[in-house]
Nucleic acid binder design. Structure first.
Lengths: 144, 144
DNA sequence: GATGTAATTGAGAATCAATTACAATAATAC
DNA sequence: GTATTATTGTAATTGATTCTCAATTACATC
């Protein structure tokens, strides 16, 4: 399997874009994040490492990472985007607690089959899906 | 089955909130919308009927409707919230075209079973889920 | 290695949906 | 009817994201 930096560099070359230290710093940082992140968090983490990458550059780089399949947008319905490092990870869905915000991951293999079915029924070429389940975790149920 | 206005009035009474013409106008308008809507659209439709309800009131009313199960937030990943009239409708998921923005609905009965499974495995009390599938419709595939 | 080009950058301004403060109004309880 | 307090519209504010613009820099070519 190609390394993620490799995937990104090939993508960059293929599009006549440019390989910059900023983009690679951002990507590197994403690899090191365990779990989900948002732009603010990513920016702070880079700040802490004395990187001067601006938020604007992060906002500009993320669509590239998404486009080449390294990162995925995740919707937690809290008013801004979250992202996750996706390359080489099994596709999964999120179970989110409406009380404390905890997010668990689970696998849902049946959805590949659903995609094939939808492709056939509606004539779509399917690119992906997002499934979120929400509710209250054990702790938050007690607290109610 | 209780009428939707009834559901809402009981909810209002139960919470010691107040029944106002603005809220009922908004709710009434939502019933008459076929399909999905966003705050802007709802506001324009009310304007057209010479209603003076402000956007702020719409923003303030929607969480109430959601809370009493009459309306559901829908995420089309286009930067702002969409909603749909939900009471008495079968739960469904959305298939969205990344090219033209078309949205189709489909039913996915297996997910009720998934919810029960998750409830058991993680100790959650599940409140609901959202599934969106995205890809390119037949027309947009040709255009590429 | 120098040069031209066009992509990329950071900083800050602009945008836009959503929220909030405030004073006026109006729904409910008494 | 009166008091209480939720709700309203208006306008200001917030906060995430996008855009602008001048300066910089990566890459291809000489």
């Amino acid at each position: 399997m190609k390394s993620e930096i490799q995937v990104f560099r090939e993508y960059i070359r293929g599009r006549r874009l440019r390989r910059t230290p900023e983009r690679e710093q951002i990507l590197q940082e994403i690899f090191e994040i365990h779990g989900h992140f948002d732009v603010d968090e990513l920016h702070l983490r880079l700040r802490d490492k004395a990187s001067k990458v601006s938020k604007a550059s992060i906002y500009r780089a993320l669509p590239l990472f998404i486009d080449c399949g390294l990162v995925r947008e995740v919707d937690f319905s809290d008013g801004h985007w979250h992202y996750e490092h996706v390359y080489g990870h099994a596709h999964h869905s999120h179970l989110r607690c409406l009380g404390c915000g905890e997010v668990l991951e689970f696998e849902q293999p049946g959805l590949g089959c659903l995609e094939a079915h939808l492709a056939q029924e509606f004539g779509y070429r399917i690119k992906g899906h997002q499934l979120q389940v929400h509710g209250f975790c054990a702790t938050c149920q007690e607290a109610e």
